[in-house]
Design a protein around this nucleic acid. Sequence first.
DNA 1: GTGTTTGCAAAGTGTTTGCAATTTA
DNA 2: TAAATTGCAAACACTTTGCAAACAC
Lengths: 139, 139
Amino acid sequence: MEKVRPFSQALDRLRDAGLRPTRQRLALAKLLFDDCHRHITAEQLHSEALTGNIRVSLATVYNTLHQFTAAGLLREIVVDAGRSYFDSNTTCHHHFFDESSGLLSDVPKGQLEVTGMPVPPVGSEVESVNVVVRIRAAS
Amino acid sequence: MEKVRPFSQALDRLRDAGLRPTRQRLALAKLLFDDCHRHITAEQLHSEALTGNIRVSLATVYNTLHQFTAAGLLREIVVDAGRSYFDSNTTCHHHFFDESSGLLSDVPKGQLEVTGMPVPPVGSEVESVNVVVRIRAAS
DNA sequence: GTGTTTGCAAAGTGTTTGCAATTTA
DNA sequence: TAAATTGCAAACACTTTGCAAACAC
């Protein structure tokens, strides 16, 4: 008889974030965090869940993505007016956004250097610096 | 009697771009290009036009903004999932985006340097490199 | 049990589209 | 006059919301 496989990191992540580990959150967290880093939209995650026989509504996927983002487990990447992308890698890095396919990918470390922290307008403070390299299928 | 004031650059811009200088396009072009550079959304431009007694529909504002962008007169800036911004300054520069107010502004030249042109995934080519500094009202 | 979370369907937002009427050259 | 452009209203894609039922502790 097979041993119960050890818990993925998903449960601990939820606990640490103070989020109740509900069936839906756990399942989504596993999809998001168990393997390598992901760049994903709400729709994509939802259909991935359904494919994996995880019953979850699209509304809950949206809620969950925002809760995870607020908890610092995800980073929201704005590259497309009209669609939100979420990145399971919250460390500082830059992105390629393929306008032909809508695919988001990481710029390998060291290829792009941003130097200098700009002085924000008075009364405001810098929250993050985002770099997006827009690409297209070569002509 | 007052002399007819000289044509703004708007008419020439439209001619050069091969766009028929209709009443609506001319009026929008004047709002966009006659004074200093603008960062503006379709809604904003539309209400600005109405305020200036220029009858134009929102649909036409959208069409016009996209035509101007395709013609290289404007640059589209993606900073907010759900809203498109257009910049009348098409030269290379970076932006502050104030998440509290939704205001877009330029990062003064020299404060932020991007070095290195990343190698895009095979089969694709770099179209542009966009840097957005997200800011917030200071706490 | 009690407060949290979920799912549904409806509402909301910004944007695009189809097509008849209007305008431009 | 012929072709391009406009305005309207309906359609659209994505996201959020309200609330009753289900769930976690």
